Computed example of a mutant assay.
Amino acid sequence: MLQHNISNSDAYQRPVFGIKNKIKRAIWQLVWLILCRYSPIIFHSWRTTILRLFGAKIGNKNYIYPNIKIWAPWLLETEDVVTIGPGVEIYNPGGVFLGDHSILSQDSYLCGATHNYDSIDYDYISKKIIVKRYSWICAKAIILAGVTCGEGSVLGAGSIATKDLEEWTIYSGNPSKIIKERKKIA
């Protein structure tokens, strides 16, 4: 029988986040569950208030749906008239910025971290995601760590953005590729 000696220095067994971070996130998740998760859809201002209490910088007239998941609200910043639609998940250890009139459609996913799979230490890497004004992240689309979605860009349904998206351009596929330019509306 093959036996493995695994020590506490094994990077695959070391926690990435400390106990204080885990407790803070557990309190956040419990508060969201109790106060927001089952709130009526039209209670957008109530949910933005709760997010602000947990350190989120939220602009005016944001439309934040009740059944979303935000990993760390204190690392979320939005400008005005931003929509975070039903089922959206924001994993934001590196931070997330959402510009004016940006939309995250249903079940889209922002993944702000990864690991260095070429390192024996399997280093945890977090990077900020930026979605600039008038950008639209369509249903079930995924944005990976460090990606900037240029102003007015569109990431098509089910697509995956592994690299920055150009301004006023429509992308689709996995990995996403340019489909065509978008008419500038602002």
Rank of each mutant, 00 (worst) to 15 (best):
A11Y: 10
H4K: 15
E181D: 03
G156I: 04
L33D: 15
P40I: 09
K180D: 08
S135R: 07
S176F: 06
P93E: 09
E167T: 00
T83L: 14
N60C: 12
K132E: 01
G156N: 03
I42F: 12
S153I: 02
H115C: 07
K127N: 09
L51Q: 04
E89Q: 13
E181I: 02
C36S: 08
L33C: 15
R47S: 00
C138I: 13
L2T: 09
W32S: 03
I41M: 15
H44L: 07
M1I: 10
G156V: 05
I120Q: 11
T148I: 04
A157F: 03
E181Q: 04
Y122T: 09
G146F: 05
V88R: 07
S153R: 01
I185M: 11
Q106H: 06
S176K: 09
A145I: 14
W74S: 06
R133S: 00
S135V: 05
G55M: 01
V81S: 12
S39L: 12
I19P: 06
E166R: 08
T48V: 06
Y122I: 14
N21M: 13
I27G: 05
S176M: 09
G152T: 02
Y134T: 06
I103E: 11
L51M: 06
S102F: 01
I50R: 10
S108L: 02
S108H: 01
C138L: 13
D10N: 10
H44R: 06
G152C: 01
A161N: 00
V88P: 05
K24R: 05
I6D: 04
I129A: 00
A157E: 05
A139G: 08
K163E: 06
N174L: 11
L98R: 04
S159R: 02
R52V: 04
V81W: 15
K183S: 10
Y122R: 12
C138K: 11
I120V: 14
G87C: 12
N92D: 04
I142S: 06
K163S: 05
I6P: 01
E167R: 01
Y124R: 15
Y65I: 12
N67D: 13
Y124Q: 12
S153L: 02
I137L: 09
W28R: 05
I34A: 01
K132S: 02
S126R: 14
Y38R: 15
Y124E: 10
Q13D: 13
A26E: 07
A145F: 09
L110T: 00
I42E: 15
V81G: 11
N5V: 11
I34K: 03
F17H: 08
S7P: 01
K128Q: 02
L155K: 01
H115V: 05
K183R: 09
L76H: 00
I129E: 03
Y134R: 11
Y12C: 09
A113V: 09
I185S: 15
N8W: 13
